[in-house]
């Protein structure tokens, strides 16, 4: 089956195959990012601006604010989870509290 990914309720959460999987309001550490000049940004996730699939990764651009320095912004593409089994659509989210490295490159087939 294809993997169905979207952000809903004004970017409040990411749905993967019609299940709420990733939510706003957590702090995500970001490394090698260009949100602010903090080496590790302590990034409060306030909304998902864009989501997409780059098999097997599910990725998102995340809107929020670094709570160390106060800079707000939208990140480059961050992998938020992985489709482990494309047949069943089984999805495994990454541990959002582990360090994320945003990536500018994203060959997005279906942005939304």
């Amino acid at each position: 089956m294809t993997t169905d990914v979207h952000q809903l309720d004004d970017g409040a959460w990411i749905s993967v195959n019609d299940e709420r999987r990733i939510n706003v309001s957590d702090l995500w550490p970001l490394a090698r990012h260009d949100v602010c000049s903090c080496e590790i940004a302590d990034f409060l996730v306030e909304g998902f601006a864009e989501v997409g699939v780059e098999h097997p990764d599910v990725q998102a651009r995340v809107a929020g604010r670094c709570i160390t320095c106060g800079t707000e912004g939208v990140t480059d593409w961050i992998t938020v989870g992985r489709v482990i089994d494309p047949e069943t659509g089984e999805f495994s989210p990454v541990d959002v509290t582990s360090v994320h490295v945003p990536d500018k490159r994203h060959r997005l087939a279906h942005p939304e």
Partner: peptide, 25 residues
């Protein structure tokens, strides 16, 4: 249907129903 949850919850809003947050499905 499991794969129609998102679509229906979006539509139900029109009739004044907002699916509550995670943990309150």
């Amino acid at each position: 249907p499991d794969d129609e949850h998102d679509a229906w919850f979006e539509r139900f809003k029109w009739w004044g129903l907002y699916h509550q947050r995670k943990g309150q499905e």
